[in-house]
Amino acid sequence: MANASGLFLQEAVTANAGVAGAGDGVYTDSAAAMWTNPATMSFMGESLTTINVMAFDLKMKFYDADTPAQDGEAQSYLPSISVFHAHQVSEKVHLGLALGAAGGSSLEYGDDWAGARALDSITLNVIVLNPSLSYQINEQWSVGGGVQFSWAAFEQTMSLTNLGKKVVAAKDTDWAYGYNLGVMYRHSDDLDFGLSYRSKSEHSFDAELKGTNQSISTDIDVPEIVDFSTRYGFSEDLNLLASVQFHRWSIWDETVLNLGYGEGVAIERDWDDVWKFAIGADYKLNSDWRLKAGFSYETSPQDDSEKQWVDLQVGEQYRYSLGASTNWDNVGVDFFYEYADLGEVKSAKRSIVDGPIGASLAGVNGTFDGRIHFVGVNFTI
């Protein structure tokens, strides 16, 4: 599986996707900004509702370094929708509710590629309900916080060595919980700053392999995220936006797979923390339209080819986005397109053996190359 910042695609919960999410922690024209920073609700007026509608085309290719006949390719087309609502309940208090498809994707390589014993196909979907509250201290400062209820569905198929060429499937669902906090400072009409934090959450899956007496038990950690965002009104018509995010992926040392024998085996991950940098510009073209453009870069959580695994190939990521927004009656409409270059990730072959009869999972020796096209529109009333 190939995803933004390790496991998740953030575009479905981005407030300003036309600028690659730059400045999301201070962007108050979309209720979706509460996802990054709940303190933004204090500057959204009496009521604001945003619906994010998006589709993406994800493609991953694998080039086998030993046997070209064992090359693989996986592609998926998936839609997504998220809903956000902020409402002022008193002079200083706003309440908000976000229901977001926080991430996940689906890939199917088939059973003929080099890594089929460990991965035929994989799907991970995560939906989060995030109620929140903001409090406006004065005209310049606001604080906010919320709780997150995260539901995840996991499914994986593989061809285990000791089961011959038979493809078996495992699936499970799980709930996890966390919280988020934020602060926003409006220095002037032309300058905003925001700082926010989203806590770690952990999903545990115990999925039976269909048609066997085996199972896969594994945990997936979603890391802490710290976001610093700013907006600068360069002129009456031009806003410049920027964000720096820290994703604490160093918590993910290993994935323990229990195939039904003893204590299971560990797939070493040994990930590093990820830094994400985003910049963007929002320009007022005329009284009807605003144009947007943005770019983001994420560092790689793992540069060691011997620690890459077939389910999640990760490297540096680059995102390029364009957008345009207008108003139809009282509805704000924000269109965007984004191209994500997932880069080339080298993988060195390694094998893992579990149990007395030697159920074997094999890695691959070659290069993964991935990209994603995103298209979406957001409606705000």
Rank of each mutant, 00 (worst) to 15 (best):
L7A: 11
A114L: 03
W35V: 15
Q70G: 06
G25Y: 00
G18N: 07
S90C: 10
L9E: 13
G45D: 06
A114D: 07
S90V: 10
M54K: 09
Y27H: 11
A69Y: 00
N37M: 12
N16G: 11
Y109P: 12
E11R: 04
S30C: 09
N37H: 10
F56Q: 14
L7N: 11
E11H: 06
G115W: 01
W35D: 08
D29V: 04
N52H: 03
A69L: 12
H85N: 15
A20F: 04
R117E: 09
D66T: 13
H94N: 15
M60W: 00
A55D: 07
L97A: 06
D120T: 14
Q88E: 09
A101F: 01
L107F: 08
S106Y: 05
G18I: 10
R117N: 15
L99I: 13
L7C: 03
S105I: 01
Y77K: 10
A15I: 06
F8I: 10
I81R: 00
Q70Y: 10
S106E: 06
E46L: 05
D66P: 02
A32R: 00
A98F: 03
P38Q: 08
D57I: 07
D71H: 07
L7I: 12
G100R: 04
K92V: 10
L95R: 00
V19E: 05
Q70S: 12
T40Y: 03
G110V: 10
Y63F: 13
D29F: 05
V19M: 10
F8K: 00
D29N: 11
Q88D: 08
Q70K: 14
G110H: 04
T36S: 15
D112M: 07
L107V: 15
A12T: 12
Q88P: 09
A69I: 08
A12R: 06
T50S: 15
S82Y: 04
Y77P: 07
R117C: 05
V83S: 11
G110Y: 03
G23S: 04
E11I: 02
G18E: 06
S90K: 04
D24W: 02
A98C: 11
D66H: 07
M44A: 13
A55P: 03
F84I: 11
A17D: 05
I81V: 15
R117D: 14
A118E: 06
P38W: 04
A102P: 02
V89M: 07
Y109I: 11
A17Y: 01
G25T: 03
M34E: 08
T67D: 14
G104Q: 01
A65N: 14
G25F: 02
A17P: 14
K61L: 12
A32K: 00
M60Y: 00
M54V: 13
A55Y: 05
Y109W: 11
T67I: 12
E11C: 05
D120C: 09
V93S: 07
